[in-house]
Amino acid sequence: MIAEFKEKVDEILRRHSCEKKELITIIQEIQKEYRYLPEDILIYVAEKMDISQSKIYGVATFYENFSLEAKGKNIIKVCDGTACHVRKSLPILNAMNKELGLSDKKKTTDDLLFTIETVSCLGACGLAPVITINDHVHPKMTPETAVDLIRTIKKEEAQC
């Protein structure tokens, strides 16, 4: 693990005094930092907290929200709750997947720019169908507007 990572992880662990009951919060903060849970960091945390690797891996795989695979810079969440579903959220998902060459199994682009996930309800049913990109809400989407959004981001990314 590179030193810069270690410093950040140590700081997170210090804030929670390596307390076993804080495990979930600690992994959440690590995920916030790296957008996913890198294996070597989890192994390091297990050692520091004196818990088994199996235990930390068990917690990390139990919750849907934790990811053990690297995620893209732009995380797109497509709401597929009841309201969004009846207002045709799936065509939006399919259009975006097609645009980025992704599928149910492959959720992140190879250039690590985009990750597409579905969520059960974002709690904004009045705005259905909804997607969020990096927690920014985009209401009343259509497949076309969603693909446009992706293209805009791609353009911006290409510029910087």
Partner: peptide, 20 residues
């Protein structure tokens, strides 16, 4: 005190195996 085996995933997907 070894912890070589653990629960991985959950619900009907749960499987008992070593980490990672």
């Amino acid at each position: 005190g070894v912890g070589a085996l653990g629960f991985v995933h959950r619900g009907s997907d749960v499987i008992i195996k070593p980490a990672f």
